[in-house]
Design a protein around this nucleic acid. Structure first.
Lengths: 127, 127
DNA sequence: TTCAATACTTCGGACTCGACAGTATAAATG
DNA sequence: CATTTATACTGTCGAGTCCGAAGTATTGAA
């Protein structure tokens, strides 16, 4: 299985009965566990309707192939909406769906916390 | 660069000045973007002091090499604490550090939201 | 005619992951 | 005494994923 989220229909069926509130293995969490996925939701949410080039520039260092793949997956999952305009040169805009907005609301506190933690961590080679 | 979080010292230096609250690319978010990382924080938090075997059983399908790597990274990042007892057979217990607890607090709403979303998504093969 | 602009693909190689077998130790079992 | 059992991993190899760079398509501008 190549994990392309064509259909998000992988019920984990409670892998173990000892723990109840562990995270689902298939589905949205798997999507979000891929590189730049969470950041992408943040960026698109922050920019508003964001063009592909804007997103690429915001990241500064992501390969276009990976970015493209991530974008597709997020659209497929119903988190991002893609609107393409019939112009030359082409124009495509991404923005959060309602579901995407919800996700961003849940993601924001995590992001802010991570930023603060990273700032405080100067060098941690020694324990 | 192989991204091993030996030292979390990759300052992104504000990749783009147009967006301010986008997510950091290096650091904790990168660690959490790896497979099972977020789930691992949840599981260890739920079980309490968790032995390696408990964690492995809770996931039901993770390879031991990957699980081991993730565990090491999380320990290295100061999110998990590892305690090893000099017994035979060996016993090792993992639990969340204070930082790890904070992370779990920020992760929980996301997880719950994801679970609900996955439940509602029956089949989405058609757009 | 060539260049510019945009939103991606395609490609080869590097990196990461999964499955499975193996390691070390000592107590319990036969 | 030899074998099994239990735990927490590590090693290996093939498959899957990600990266950087170059290429594609289109049409107006120079």
């Amino acid at each position: 299985m190549t994990e392309t989220p064509d259909s998000v229909t992988e019920a984990p069926e409670t892998p173990n009965s000892e723990v109840d509130c562990l995270c689902p293995l298939g589905g949205v969490m798997d999507l979000l566990s891929r590189r730049y996925a969470m950041q992408l939701v943040c960026v698109v949410g922050a920019i508003g309707p964001a063009r592909y080039g804007d997103v690429e520039a915001a990241f500064d260092g992501v390969s276009s192939s990976t970015l493209s793949a991530r974008l597709d997956e997020l659209v497929e999952a119903g988190i991002l909406a893609r609107e393409q305009y019939a112009e030359i040169p082409p124009r495509v805009e991404y923005e959060l769906t309602d579901t995407g907005e919800e996700l961003r609301d849940h993601l924001s506190p995590l992001i802010r916390w991570a930023e603060e933690l990273d700032e405080g961590t100067i060098s941690r080679t020694q324990e």
